[in-house]
Amino acid sequence: MLDVLVVDDDLRVAEINARYVEKVPGFRVAARAHCAAEALAALERTPVDLVLLDHCLPDGTGLDLVRRLREDGHGTDVIMITAVGDVDTVQAALRLGALHYLVKPFTFASLRTRLESYAALRRTVDRVGGRGPADQEQVDRIFGALRTAPTPSAPGLPSGHSEATTDLICDVLHRAGRPLSAVEVAAEAGLSRSTAQRYLRHLEQAGRLRLSLKYGDTGRPEHRYALIAP
């Protein structure tokens, strides 16, 4: 079993990422952290195999945290999971030894593919084993284990929709326990109003949300959405 530390400053996103990890056989979440200091403390308490690391943290960047880990002698593997997609940051992550770089929003299938390739890497290294020099064939197998094939969009989702954002919106509605407007959902989820409306409309049409109308002083009804209990 491979132990994972999930690091994200957004509590809801960290919870979604943790649920994704737990759905992949052979992986379990050992801890969650929401800033660099919490991540360092968690690693001191419980060493893990892999860190799923956001770049934008309240007390520094994810790359600063990786540098600190290496300086402190932590050989923990890292997969970056962040909305930051500029080439400079990606290159810096590569130079610091990040095994993968996943740009938000992403689907469960995208994360699963990368976790599975990481597990394959660990198995390959274990099979090669030994302390002697590896030949070229063994080296090629180790590096080849990290290659991931492109993953299709999650089934049942329209083009441009991600499973992570869908789960985030459903989580917002679940926590609220009452119907919310698109404006309220957008504010809670950290999304634009248009994005929230697009996802809410799809979820309502898919039968996962109940739509109700609330009439205000202007006479124009406000659309409100609530989860339909399974």
Rank of each mutant, 00 (worst) to 15 (best):
L200Y: 09
E71D: 15
H223Q: 14
A186W: 00
V78M: 03
F108I: 03
R32A: 11
D88P: 01
L209V: 01
T151P: 02
F108H: 13
K104T: 11
A30G: 04
N17E: 15
L121A: 08
D140S: 13
D59T: 03
S162A: 12
L213A: 12
R208P: 07
D72H: 11
P155I: 02
S192V: 01
G144T: 02
F27A: 01
G144C: 03
V51D: 07
L52K: 04
K23A: 14
T148Y: 06
I142S: 08
E22C: 01
R45K: 13
G73A: 05
A134S: 15
R114I: 05
D64V: 05
D167N: 13
M1Q: 05
T46D: 09
G75W: 04
N17R: 09
T124S: 11
R210K: 11
G190T: 00
P47K: 00
D77E: 08
R67I: 12
V87W: 11
G177S: 07
F27C: 01
V29L: 00
C170M: 14
I81H: 09
G207F: 03
D64L: 08
F27P: 02
R12K: 15
V78H: 06
V21A: 05
L43D: 09
V183Q: 11
D49A: 06
L50S: 00
V6Q: 01
A37W: 08
S110N: 14
A92T: 07
I16W: 04
S159A: 12
T113K: 10
D49N: 08
L146R: 02
R19L: 10
A93K: 06
R122I: 06
A189M: 02
P152W: 05
L173S: 10
A145E: 11
V7K: 06
L5T: 02
E204K: 05
V21K: 01
V90T: 07
E38P: 09
L203T: 00
R114V: 06
A33F: 00
A149K: 06
K104D: 13
V24K: 00
F106C: 13
L57D: 10
R95S: 13
G177P: 03
R127N: 15
G160L: 02
P155S: 11
G156P: 01
V128E: 15
G97C: 01
T107H: 14
I228Q: 13
G132W: 06
